[in-house]
C-alpha cells in the first residue's frame, strides 16, 4: 500500500520535504551511530565495565582513554554501556509517546465534536502542567527504575504530538478522497488507516525526532535526581555519579564530559533532523529589504 497511498499526498502538497539535505543526513547518521553503539555495546566494551581497574578518578591514559570514574571503573566502557540504557529509554518512551499522541490526535481530529473537545481539554491541562516536576513526583512515589522511567517519560510526553496530529488531520478530514471513502461505506478504521494516516505519517515521523530529543533529556534529568536506580549505567546516571562525588571540584572532567557530550550530540542530531524538514506548502522566506551592503553603481565612462 505504501507507494499507492503516499503519492497522492505529495501531489496534493501535504507532507514534509527535506530542506537541508546535509543537516538531515548528519542528524540521521549520528542517531544511527548511537543506535548501533547501543546494540553492539556488549561486543565492544569489556564484559565487566563496573569493575574497579584503577584509582578513583584516574586520569585518562593509553589504557583508559576516557579515564576512570568515581569507583575507578573505565569511563569509555561505562559510556558505551550507558549508551544502551539511554537509547533504550529514549526510543521506548518515544514510541509510547508518539503512539499515544498519534492516536489521540488522529481520533480527536477525525471524529471532532465532543470527542475532540474532551481530548483537547485534557491535552490543554497537560500542556500547562510543568512536566518535569510531574515526572519527578510520579517517579519518586513509584520508585526508581529504568522501566518506570520509560513509562513515565512516554506517558507524559504525548501532548505536543497530539496537538500537531490533530490539526493536520483536521485539514485532511474534509478532503474529497476522505469524504468519498466515507460515502462508499468504508469503516472509520479503514478510512483512518488507508486515507488519513498516510497523509500525516511524515509529520508523525518528524515529530518523533523532537520527542526523542526531549526523552533523552528527561532521562538524564530523572537520573540526575536519583530517579533511575543507582545500579543502572546510563548517560544520566554517569553524570549524576560524577556530581555526587564532586568530580568538578576534583578536576575530573573526564568523569562527566563524555556522557554529557553524548546527550548533547544526540539532542543536536534530533534538532538537525527536525529543523531540516519543512512543510511542502510553506513558501521560502523572501529577500530582506534592508541589508548591510550598499548599492553598486557601475560607471560606463570609467570615472
Amino acid at each position: 500500500m505504501t507507494a499507492a497511498t503516499v503519492s497522492p499526498a505529495h501531489r496534493r502538497g501535504i507532507g514534509l520535504r527535506v530542506r537541508d539535505q546535509k543537516a538531515a543526513t548528519a542528524g540521521v547518521v549520528i542517531i544511527a551511530a548511537f543506535g548501533l553503539l547501543a546494540v553492539l555495546a556488549d561486543v565492544i566494551a569489556p564484559s565487566s565495565v563496573q569493575q574497579q581497574v584503577g584509582p578513583v578518578f584516574g586520569r585518562p591514559s593509553a589504557d583508559h582513554l576516557l579515564g576512570l570514574d568515581d569507583s575507578g571503573a573505565d569511563m569509555l566502557g561505562l559510556v558505551l554501556v550507558g549508551t544502551r540504557v539511554s537509547m533504550l529509554v529514549g526510543l521506548a518512551s518515544t514510541v509510547i509517546a508518539v503512539a499515544l499522541g498519534g492516536v489521540v490526535g488522529v481520533v480527536a481530529g477525525y471524529f471532532g465534536g465532543r470527542v475532540d473537545a474532551v481530548l483537547m481539554r485534557l491535552t490543554d491541562v497537560f500542556l500547562v502542567v510543568p512536566i518535569l516536576p510531574l515526572m519527578i513526583v510520579v517517579a519518586a512515589l513509584w520508585g526508581p527504575s529504568v522501566g518506570h522511567a520509560i513509562l513515565i517519560i512516554g506517558l507524559l510526553s504525548w501532548t505536543p504530538t497530539a496537538r500537531v496530529m490533530r490539526s493536520q488531520v483536521l485539514s485532511t478530514r474534509e478532503r474529497a478522497f476522505v469524504r468519498r471513502a466515507k460515502a462508499l461505506g468504508a469503516s472509520h478504521l479503514r478510512v483512518i488507516w488507508h486515507h488519513v494516516f498516510p497523509r500525516v505519517r511524515g509529520l508523525l515521523v518528524a515529530n518523533s525526532v523532537i520527542v526523542l530529543a526531549s526523552a533523552i533529556f528527561f532521562e538524564a534529568a530523572l537520573a540526575f535526581l536519583g530517579l533511575e536506580s543507582v545500579s543502572t549505567t546510563s548517560w544520566g546516571t554517569l553524570i549524576a555519579n560524577a556530581f555526587n562525588r564532586a568530580a568538578s571540584s576534583a578536576g575530573a572532567w573526564w568523569a562527566f564530559v563524555p556522557p554529557g557530550a553524548c546527550i548533547a550530540l544526540m539532542v543536536l542530531a534530533c534538532s538537525l533532523v527536525a529543523m531540516s524538514l519543512e512543510d511542502v506548502g510553506s513558501a521560502r522566506v523572501p529577500e530582506s529589504h534592508i541589508f548591510a551592503g550598499r548599492l553598486e553603481v557601475i560607471r560606463s565612462d570609467g570615472q
Binding site: 529589504h289 541589508f291 551592503g293 548599492l295 553598486e296 553603481v297 557601475i298 560607471r299
Partner: peptide, 12 residues
C-alpha cells in the same frame, strides 16, 4: 530612490 535588494547594481 535605491529601493533595490542586496547585490543589485545600477548604471546611468
Amino acid at each position: 530612490v535605491g529601493l533595490l535588494p542586496a547585490r543589485a547594481a545600477v548604471s546611468g
